[in-house]
Amino acid sequence: KLPPGWEKRMFRSNGTVYYFNHITNASQFERPSG
């Protein structure tokens, strides 16, 4: 389970998975720990 605010997303163009935090508007490719 991801830390609060984080969700898994995917770029439609190339299928790359990334993680987005809707609380802080942060995004990263590494899976957030917590």
Rank of each mutant, 00 (worst) to 15 (best):
Lys1Trp: 13
Lys1Thr: 13
Lys1Pro: 15
Lys1Arg: 12
Lys1Asp: 15
Lys1Leu: 13
Lys1Tyr: 12
Lys1His: 13
Leu2Asn: 01
Leu2His: 00
Leu2Tyr: 03
Leu2Ile: 04
Leu2Phe: 05
Leu2Ser: 03
Leu2Glu: 15
Leu2Pro: 15
Leu2Cys: 10
Pro3Val: 02
Pro3Cys: 09
Pro3Trp: 03
Pro3Met: 02
Pro3Asp: 04
Pro3Leu: 04
Pro3Gln: 03
Pro3Ser: 01
Pro4Lys: 07
Pro4Phe: 11
Pro4Met: 09
Pro4Val: 08
Pro4Asp: 11
Pro4Ala: 12
Pro4Trp: 10
Pro4Gln: 07
Pro4Ser: 09
Pro4Tyr: 14
Pro4Asn: 08
Gly5Cys: 10
Gly5Phe: 06
Gly5Met: 02
Gly5Gln: 02
Gly5Ile: 02
Gly5Asp: 05
Gly5Thr: 00
Gly5Pro: 08
Gly5Val: 01
Gly5Arg: 02
Gly5Leu: 02
Gly5Ser: 02
Gly5Lys: 00
Gly5Asn: 06
Trp6Asp: 02
Trp6Leu: 01
Trp6Ile: 01
Trp6Tyr: 01
Trp6Arg: 01
Trp6Thr: 04
Trp6Phe: 01
Trp6Glu: 01
Glu7Arg: 08
Glu7Asp: 04
Glu7Val: 13
Glu7Ile: 11
Glu7Thr: 11
Glu7Ser: 10
Glu7Tyr: 08
Glu7Trp: 08
Glu7Phe: 08
Glu7His: 09
Lys8Glu: 12
Lys8Arg: 13
Lys8Phe: 10
Lys8Val: 15
Lys8Met: 15
Lys8Ser: 06
Lys8Thr: 09
Lys8Asn: 02
Arg9Asn: 03
Arg9Thr: 01
Arg9Ser: 03
Arg9Leu: 07
Arg9Trp: 03
Arg9Pro: 00
Arg9His: 05
Arg9Ile: 05
Met10Gln: 10
Met10His: 10
Met10Tyr: 14
Met10Lys: 08
Met10Glu: 09
Met10Trp: 13
Met10Thr: 12
Phe11Arg: 09
Phe11Leu: 14
Phe11His: 12
Phe11Lys: 11
Phe11Ile: 14
Phe11Trp: 10
Phe11Asp: 15
Arg12Asp: 15
Arg12Gly: 15
Arg12His: 12
Arg12Leu: 14
Arg12Pro: 13
Arg12Thr: 14
Arg12Asn: 14
Arg12Met: 13
Arg12Phe: 09
Ser13Val: 11
Ser13Gly: 12
Ser13Lys: 12
Ser13Pro: 11
Ser13Asp: 11
Ser13Phe: 12
Ser13Gln: 11
Ser13Trp: 13
Ser13Ala: 09
Ser13Leu: 08
Ser13Glu: 12
Asn14Asp: 14
Asn14Ser: 14
Asn14Ile: 06
Asn14Phe: 03
Asn14Met: 03
Asn14Ala: 11
Asn14Gly: 09
Asn14His: 09
Asn14Tyr: 09
Gly15Ala: 10
Gly15Tyr: 04
Gly15Asp: 05
Gly15Met: 09
Gly15Asn: 09
Thr16Arg: 14
Thr16Asn: 10
Thr16Tyr: 14
Thr16Val: 14
Thr16Ser: 14
Thr16His: 11
Thr16Lys: 15
Thr16Gln: 14
Thr16Asp: 05
Thr16Leu: 14
Thr16Ile: 15
Val17His: 07
Val17Asn: 05
Val17Met: 05
Val17Gly: 04
Val17Thr: 07
Val17Trp: 07
Val17Ser: 07
Val17Asp: 01
Val17Gln: 05
Val17Lys: 05
Tyr18Leu: 02
Tyr18Ala: 00
Tyr18Val: 02
Tyr18Lys: 00
Tyr18Ile: 06
Tyr18Met: 04
Tyr18Glu: 01
Tyr18Pro: 00
Tyr18Arg: 03
Tyr18Ser: 00
Tyr19Ser: 00
Tyr19Glu: 00
Tyr19Trp: 10
Tyr19Gly: 00
Tyr19Arg: 00
Tyr19Pro: 02
Tyr19Thr: 00
Tyr19Lys: 00
Tyr19Asn: 00
Tyr19Val: 00
Phe20Glu: 02
Phe20Ser: 02
Phe20Tyr: 14
Phe20Ile: 06
Phe20Trp: 10
Phe20Pro: 02
Phe20Leu: 01
Asn21Leu: 10
Asn21Pro: 00
Asn21Phe: 08
Asn21Glu: 03
Asn21Gly: 02
Asn21His: 06
Asn21Ser: 05
Asn21Tyr: 06
Asn21Thr: 04
Asn21Ile: 11
His22Lys: 12
His22Ala: 10
His22Phe: 14
His22Gly: 07
His22Asn: 13
His22Ile: 15
His22Tyr: 15
His22Trp: 14
His22Glu: 07
His22Thr: 15
Ile23Gln: 06
Ile23Ala: 07
Ile23Tyr: 12
Ile23Ser: 04
Ile23Val: 10
Ile23Asp: 07
Ile23His: 10
Ile23Thr: 07
Ile23Leu: 10
Ile23Trp: 06
Ile23Phe: 13
Thr24Ala: 02
Thr24His: 03
Thr24Ser: 05
Thr24Arg: 06
Thr24Trp: 10
Thr24Asn: 06
Thr24Val: 03
Asn25Trp: 07
Asn25Arg: 11
Asn25Lys: 14
Asn25Tyr: 08
Asn25Ser: 10
Asn25Thr: 06
Asn25Val: 06
Asn25Ala: 07
Ala26Arg: 13
Ala26Leu: 11
Ala26Asp: 09
Ala26Phe: 07
Ala26Gly: 05
Ala26Lys: 13
Ala26Glu: 15
Ser27Leu: 15
Ser27Gly: 05
Ser27Trp: 15
Ser27Val: 15
Ser27Lys: 14
Ser27Ile: 15
Ser27Tyr: 15
Ser27Asp: 02
Ser27Met: 15
Ser27Ala: 12
Gln28Leu: 05
Gln28Phe: 04
Gln28Glu: 03
Gln28Gly: 04
Gln28Pro: 02
Gln28Ile: 05
Gln28Val: 04
Gln28Asn: 03
Gln28Ala: 07
Gln28Thr: 09
Gln28His: 05
Phe29Lys: 07
Phe29Ile: 12
Phe29Leu: 11
Phe29Ala: 10
Phe29His: 07
Phe29Asn: 05
Phe29Asp: 06
Phe29Gln: 06
Phe29Met: 08
Phe29Glu: 05
Glu30His: 08
Glu30Met: 05
Glu30Lys: 05
Glu30Trp: 08
Glu30Val: 06
Glu30Thr: 10
Glu30Ser: 04
Glu30Gly: 07
Arg31Asn: 07
Arg31Ser: 04
Arg31Tyr: 10
Arg31Val: 09
Arg31His: 11
Arg31Pro: 11
Arg31Trp: 10
Arg31Ile: 12
Pro32Leu: 01
Pro32Gly: 05
Pro32Glu: 01
Pro32Met: 02
Pro32Ala: 02
Pro32Arg: 00
Pro32Ser: 03
Pro32Tyr: 05
Ser33Pro: 13
Ser33His: 10
Ser33Arg: 13
Ser33Leu: 11
Ser33Ile: 11
Ser33Gln: 11
Ser33Trp: 12
Ser33Phe: 12
Ser33Gly: 14
Gly34Trp: 15
Gly34Arg: 10
Gly34Lys: 08
Gly34Gln: 10
Gly34Ile: 12
Gly34Ala: 12
Gly34His: 12
Gly34Tyr: 14
Gly34Ser: 11
Gly34Val: 11
Gly34Met: 12
